[in-house]
Design a protein around this nucleic acid. Structure first.
Lengths: 350, 350
DNA sequence: ATTATTTCCGTTACCGTGCACGGAATTCAA
DNA sequence: TTGAATTCCGTGCACGGTAACGGAAATAAT
């Protein structure tokens, strides 16, 4: 497959009767070369099938490639902690080949902290940026700055409607709602389901749950149009509120056995659910946070639908590295990644 | 996280009052250095936190790293075709950093072809080898040769009971049978299931299906001890035989609605199953071959349990590259990887 | 025709390591 | 005390590419 090539810049210099300086100029087409020479060099490159030696190039250029990752703070047990661990993994695997990764965090509910993190990131002069777009306006500001400086960037998790990014890696949100509904019902008729939602302030611009809910509702509409859909809102940081909200609901609807949440916080329900066990209950949530997986193991949660923020991060970093090192554009722009179904029987290996 | 280090071999040479030649000698401890100098250099390395520049090293050493992959022929639509595609992916991502991959194939039913492929592989003098152990005796012969030459190797898919390998990447087979049983029954009581098996010759030494079957049977025993387990054997290359075998079985047991196969060939049943549709039937198989995924899409197969040969290959290659480039041992030897549950609702993104 | 500009190109000094070669310093044999 | 044999270590080139520098050739201006 791969040949044992050894054609160097000198080979093509000799072949064309020019010097390596000239060859280098056309390789990086930075001008100062006559049409004729340019053509000759290009031809020789084609014929000999020249490919630059990355090591030599990086060595001479004297740079490590630096990729910056700009994502929300990885609070303990949060979704972004998974992504952060993905950074560590990716770092592990790519630093071996001279790519450095810097990680910038911000408070996902605080625009100002995002601005500051962006600024610090730009100061690091990375050769590529991986980011999760949280604040639409600020994201635009940032991407414009990046484009101005010619720094390529990738989105993970979700993406805005702009177009200047190099690649996007994320989950198909609408479809994940659909899948969720199928796992919740197990293909059997269901008379009522409870959706637990988080009452959140309007800070966040991009909310993955709306698309998920849409997919979920469409599935239910199509397959079980008579199923009743209830909503209960909770305060994520107030255990008492969660407890009372659920208690109130289930007092009215003791027959409801299907519970779902569209964000990564299904673990918030665990205390209540464990105090009111029901072997027939079916609970489906998203994302393989540790707390969620524990709930799966204990049987409180039936199914988790997971994505791989770590893999998303890795792929984004690799894409950027590839681009920075050899200037290669990825073949696909948008990468919708697989959704993992986790049950008590396969959770151990995730 | 990562520092902007720039400590070179020269820095520590100056620091110790020695020359880079000497430093180099202790770095690769190839002798010809006095105790005293050795100690001084080691100390300086510690203090300055010296880390060799991979680029310069690779450049000087003049070599690309070459990783050989030795797996069964990737017949169209077969399991190993997935692995092969993984090689392509991995190649894509790692050639960027100077790692070359060579792919050697053999007929998994022909020991002689394995021997030849091994020989050709050794001739290529790879710096690392990824292999799937098919023939126990021959695998031993090969690994001995590799060890003699100091070439590290990784196993994927399954592994022998030896110990000299660098890493193993594969699926937990027993547990996959367990998971399979859970998906087949869907947690509901079942009175009878049909296991379709392939009557194969005794060429293959390692057969993943026996462990899977064991896990499956244990699950059934534990949860539904009264369930009847039937076995039907088919000839994989003879469609007529498959048809008649299944016809004969279902004539006797028209009530059986749960069908499972433990190898990657569930797609062989599709023609029969499609001619005798049954919306209540539940069919579970293994591995995301294209044909299997098509069957999933069409609804003939209910669930597939997939592994990622491509990811296994990638990880193995990365491990070897890491080891070859920086001599770093992986932290874990055996990597049991996650099992993916594929349903019609998430199959598209795999 | 001479000078001033451009345009184009060759030379050269790196980048950080690996390694061969030969010489200095040390030890051993006489 | 010399010469020979070791042990140790410094020098210098190679690896393939980058980019600054300056000069030759071609073109323009005077």
């Amino acid at each position: 497959m791969a040949a044992t090539e050894k054609i160097t810049i000198m080979d093509i210099a000799r072949r064309t009767g020019l010097s390596k300086g000239t060859v280098d100029r056309v390789l990086h087409n930075r001008g100062e070369v006559s049409k004729k020479s340019y053509a000759k060099v290009m031809e020789a490159i084609q014929e000999l099938g020249y490919e630059p030696n990355v090591f030599a190039s990086l060595l001479a250029k004297g740079g490590k490639v630096l990729v910056a990752v700009l994502i929300p703070e990885s609070e303990h047990g949060s979704f972004w902690e998974l992504a952060a661990s993905g950074i560590a993994q990716a770092a592990e695997s790519v630093t071996a080949v001279g790519i450095d990764i810097v990680h910038f965090e911000y408070d996902q509910y605080d625009i100002e902290s995002f601005r500051k993190a962006s600024a610090r990131m730009l100061d690091a002069h990375p050769s590529g940026v991986v980011m999760a777009p949280m604040f639409q306006g600020e994201t635009e500001v940032l991407t414009e700055a990046l484009q101005e400086q010619g720094i390529p960037y990738c989105f993970i998790d979700s993406k805005p409607d702009t177009n200047g990014y190099l690649s996007y890696f994320g989950m198909p949100l609408y479809k994940s709602g659909y899948l969720c509904a199928d796992q919740l019902t197990g293909g059997h008729d269901v008379s009522a389901v409870l959706i637990v939602r988080i009452r959140r302030d309007r800070f966040r611009q991009s909310d993955p749950t709306v698309n998920r809910r849409a997919g979920f509702l469409d599935y239910m509409m199509e397959n079980y149009p008579d199923c009743r859909i209830d909503n209960v809102f909770i305060q994520p940081n107030d255990p008492d509120d969660i407890d009372s909200a659920l208690s109130a609901y289930f007092r009215l609807h003791p027959d409801v056995r299907h519970v779902v949440m569209f964000n990564s916080r299904i673990h918030l329900l665990v205390p209540y659910l464990e105090r009111h066990p029901d072997p027939e209950r079916r609970v489906v949530g998203f994302d393989n946070l540790k707390a969620n997986m524990d709930a799966l193991r204990s049987g409180t949660v039936s199914v988790l639908i997971g994505q791989r923020p770590d893999e998303q991060v890795r792929l984004a970093i690799e894409t950027l590295a590839e681009y920075a090192i050899r200037g290669k554009q990825p073949q696909k722009k948008d990468h919708f990644m697989h959704m993992d179904i986790l049950t008590p029987f396969n959770v151990e290996d995730y």
